[in-house]
Design a protein around this nucleic acid. Structure first.
Lengths: 337, 337
DNA sequence: TCTTGAAAAGAAAGCGCTTGCATTTTCTGG
DNA sequence: CCAGAAAATGCAAGCGCTTTCTTTTCAAGA
């Protein structure tokens, strides 16, 4: 089997130096068009592709950015990732995705792995993580951006929305409709600032009405159908029965709706259910899910543009916030009188 | 800012040569334990991580495998990818995922990009693609495996299941229940052997009953909710109305169910709907979706193991087939008398 | 104590590419 | 047509690591 062609092979055939070939590949405008086409012909002849390692070594860049997300198993991050990838691809940057399964240790591992692969930048979900990780990132000087959460005074570049405010808005609407028996199924708040903020948001709204979220009315579960259903069954067994279950995300809400149905109850007549994130799932449930719409794609695009901006490090626009909107569909209605 | 530490730094501190440090990193057992721990201390002190490019250049491997999938936007490939990634991670191999959006040109592009990144192996979905791509792959000698489809005499390593047989089984069951007005919403069959095979399977079964799939009873649509719903609305407007709509995948089926509902019909009383793939979605629909269960995770694992097996190239087990199972849930019932 | 073979460690040659600097070629205006 | 400037190209030094070959160290038997 013949060895892969090298720059030298191409250069030889085109009758130029390897430097010129390299230039044709990286800064074509710096080479006379005549030479350029000769080189291109040689490249085509050998079906030459630059060796990634050689390139990375010499230029100290990989044109790769990494993203560490909690999971691919549900569609929550899919749309954002897709947008991120598309935006990066426009600049010939490849996206490498790793999953951490909501486990901080595993996340740290994955971050290290990606850094080891020499990613030029990193996209991380949320802000909550061990300071040592941020220290490592800064020490290595690898640019990174946090997505899916946002605080005005976040010390790192971040692109997201105010989870707390969004949850608060949802809860306010719930209360406005007259609900007073409010229960919540949140994601696991530990090490998850988004889940935490969403709980706080709901608490805020309740407090405004002189209510609070009793411990027995709040369950934290993993983000999956079965867990959501189990939690809902538990909550619905209480007396008085909640008239609404506010869920930490759409997947949990879907599970809750399943539980409602399996208990012989009907949503929203007997109990309302709300979600968060507005993934496709929300549109296939029956009733359609009232949820918080999140700008998935725009977050992905913004993250890409932050990462691709070289002057990113010079403060300025390192902090992008998007609005969320409340999408009212069938799963939320006033409580039965 | 201080430059990233190199092997030499570590070697210097540990009082050994770079060769020894390299050995500690790659074949620890070949270094005396005393020296080894000295080196490890130095590594820790510098928080040293090998430079990816350097390593790739010297060893000519990247410990990376690439996967090109049609899309991340729905969960169809998520579980399989997750499994693939986990299996690869056990061997310290990183997975790079790219999407092609069911576009052959884009897929070719992505494959080239991944090859350019020096992946050690490639996972591709399905078998249908331009011969030139296979030629390129063979020329470069990059191992690859096709997943999600399978043929006994597939000339390339593949891991999947018999889409046609699975669809045939589903259709047989449909017919067995008494349906005779059968319609199908397939994925776009062009450049998609799985979608094609599924249509063929349904045709097979119909033929066994002396029926055929009239052109007016078969619609091809992209794999998304809206398209599925639109197709279903179209099919349901016909007279006589189909008593069952067999869908090319679960997402389409979900769309179809939405359409059924929006037309004021009820499934399965007025019309049955079946899916294919058995993704989570199937479990949140109302009624629960009758579908074909596909061994997502096992395909991912098998693909990983094929790719990680060095002697993969020597024929033998390059061809793995899994069984699918028919999962009967609520969305399929006998036609109304 | 000395030999000897195996184990451990070192020296150094690249791997394929980019890039600063030097050199040559081409272009421009007088 | 020529000098000087600008553009195009070449030269060659690495980038950080792995690996072959060689040398040194070690342990055990004689």
């Amino acid at each position: 089997m013949k060895p892969r062609p090298t720059l030298e092979d191409v250069a030889g055939m085109a009758g130029v130096s390897t430097a010129t070939v390299s230039r044709v590949l990286n800064q074509p405008e710096r080479v006379r068009s005549e030479t350029r086409s000769r080189v291109k012909a040689a490249v085509a002849h050998f079906d030459y592709t630059p060796h990634f390692g050689g390139r990375a070594l010499a230029s100290n860049r990989t044109n790769t950015v990494g993203a560490v997300i909690p999971t691919m198993e549900n569609a929550i991050f899919a749309r954002g990732l897709q947008a991120l990838q598309e935006s990066l691809a426009e600049e010939a940057v490849t996206l490498v995705v790793a999953t951490a399964n909501y486990d901080p240790a595993r996340e740290a591992d994955q971050i290290r792995t990606l850094l080891g692969r020499g990613v030029d930048g990193l996209v991380l979900i949320g802000e909550a993580r061990d300071p040592s990780i941020y220290a490592m990132l800064e020490r290595r000087g690898t640019p990174f951006v946090l997505v899916w959460s946002w605080r005005a005074d976040c010390p790192w570049p971040c692109v997201g929305f105010d989870n707390r405010a969004a949850a608060r808005a949802m809860a306010r609407r719930v209360l406005e409709l007259g609900h007073r028996q409010v229960a919540m199924i949140a994601g696991i708040t530990r090490d998850n600032d988004r889940a935490t903020a969403r709980v706080e948001g709901v608490r805020d709204a309740l407090r405004e009405h002189g209510l609070n979220l009793n411990a027995s009315r709040l369950i934290e579960t993993p983000y999956n159908l079965e867990a959501g259903a189990a939690a809902a069954r538990h909550l619905l067994a209480a007396t008085p029965r909640p008239t609404v279950i506010v869920c930490g995300n759409d997947v949990i809400a879907a599970g809750a709706l399943n539980a409602v149905r399996s208990l012989g109850l009907e949503a929203p007549a007997d109990v309302s259910v709300t979600g968060f994130d507005d993934i496709d799932l929300a549109l296939v449930l029956d009733p359609l899910l009232t949820t918080v719409h999140v700008p998935h794609r725009r977050m992905g695009e913004a993250a890409a543009s932050l990462l691709l901006t070289p002057h990113m490090r010079n403060a300025e626009v390192r902090n992008v916030v998007f609005e969320t909107t409340l999408v009212e569909r069938g799963s939320l209605a006033p409580p039965r009188k």
